[in-house]
Amino acid sequence: MSTLLDVENLWVKFPTRNGVFDAVRGVSFSLGRERLGIVGESGSGKSMTGRAILRLIRSPGIVEAGHVSLHGDNLLDKSEKEMRSVRGEKISMVMQDPKFSLNPVMTVGAQIIEAYRLHAKATKAEAYRKSVEMLEAVAIRDPERVMKAYPHEMSGGMGQRIMIAMMLIPNPEILIADEPTSALDVSVQGQVLSIMDKLVKDRGMGLIFISHDLNLVSQFCDRVLIMYSGRIVEVCDADKLHEAKHPYTQGLLGSLPRFDEPRDRLQVLTRDPAWRDAPSVEGRT
């Protein structure tokens, strides 16, 4: 499998009054044309990892790494201007809540067209045609109507599909999805995921899927990195997640209430301080 993205020894640091806080502490992994899941609890550094790849960490945060290379091209050496052409064109990102990602005073169509024309030199008519096509690809039934609508007229699931359409128009090689479905209802989650899955497969893209939901990740991804306090504690194949070895992963799985097997009490995770200090597991293939 060819490697699209290779991350070596990634650190994200935030200076605070009480010294430097390390949100991500020396993470290494690679991404091929696959669906890579990153799971962890809040504060595990999973979102920071995703943002750091695109250098979207706001100051005073600092990103340090051996390299973050896209096809052998180190993203950390690029200027902010060069980064802008990487974002969207080569690597796209879908965030948690579509409500905050879409501009409320622009029609959906105008936003998609703008996103497209930022990256490709196209006439308005061409961009319009392409946008409608893209909305069809994310299973939106009446794309012409949606193009004229404003974001607040869309439901959560629609909004997220529009975001995905927007992110995929420039045909990026990598899509980073940060909790793309956690703001959605269960029945809509399935739809959005299967659309994302189909697009990623058809186009041979690499997907980094960041989520707190172990079950979702085990179903949807090929490979999973489990993060704990800024480090990768375990890497495993998604379908073998339930056979995970690390006590943290086991603890997380055990703490979930199970629909299929009732139990009186839920297992409580006791955190071993040694997990924090253990070196990060290599996430390369």
């Binding site: 609890e41 809040s42 707190h212 603890g251 997380l252 703490s255 209430p257 839920l266 995770l269």
Partner: peptide, 14 residues
């Protein structure tokens, strides 16, 4: 809440 914290809270409620 996170799932591990959810477990603690649900146990507490029970």
């Amino acid at each position: 809440l996170d799932v591990s914290v959810q477990a603690e809270i649900l146990n507490l409620l029970s």
